[in-house]
Amino acid sequence: MRYYRPATTAQAVAALASQPHTSRILVGGTDLLVAVRHRSAQPTLVVDIKGVRDLTAPISVDEQGITFGPTATMGDVIAHPTVREWFPALVEAAGLVGSVAIRNRASLIANSANGSPAADTSPPLVSFNASVTITSVSGERTSLLREFFLAPRRTLCEPGEMVTSLRVPRPSPGSSSAFERMTRRRGVDLATCSVGAVVDADGAMTVGLGALGPTTLLGGPVAPIDLTSQEQLERAVDALLAPATPIGDIRAGKAYRTAMARVLARRAVLRAAARRTDPDRLTGRSS
């Protein structure tokens, strides 16, 4: 394994292109170095892009949305006032990734762009209609995040390419969002399943679903309902969860995961809806 710390994006993508199938991008290392330890990744070249000078800034805000660069950490995401105001579900999800020390290093883009179906930040990002920019020696292309995920840990990002930015459009006025996650213990854990919900001003609902299919899935949009009607809510949850294909694995059986998807979807929708008028900021589930 070689370690390379390029100074420019051009150098970085050139390095990737030199060993497209065996090179890996290194940002926070919280995923890659675990894989290297278990030999599930055996890169011949690790390209550390933290020194790249022309990289997209970690977090930049404009009228239409927020652009995240590869070096934006979970800690940055959680602390940023505009992210907190616009994307409470993303902040809640980022706050559940690993421990404080992990969040100090882990990159938002890497968490999502690795394509793990259980990644905490992907459901909210998908529900926010986020898109990514992919760069290689042949140029740039963009993709909606929900189309970027192809299969577990397989994405549109081809060998030799890297994700250089993540764009999340500003949510429509009067909307809000919430993130819910199930784990096996209260402390740091991987998601058994998760749901990020966005409820618009008019009540239209969208969800991102984590660990409920081979990739992060988008559910909805579902038309506004009377949230006080248990029956309507259950029907809406049915519709939001339509794409889910939960399986049984080491973290949960299929029946439990299926049932939890409903609980989380219901809770996320209700919390997001309530947050529209009562911006309780980030009072997530007490876990």
Partner: peptide, 11 residues
């Protein structure tokens, strides 16, 4: 909800 709890179902 007959099912194997998590982990008790062979991978």
């Amino acid at each position: 909800a007959a099912d194997h709890p998590g982990g008790e179902e062979p991978a």
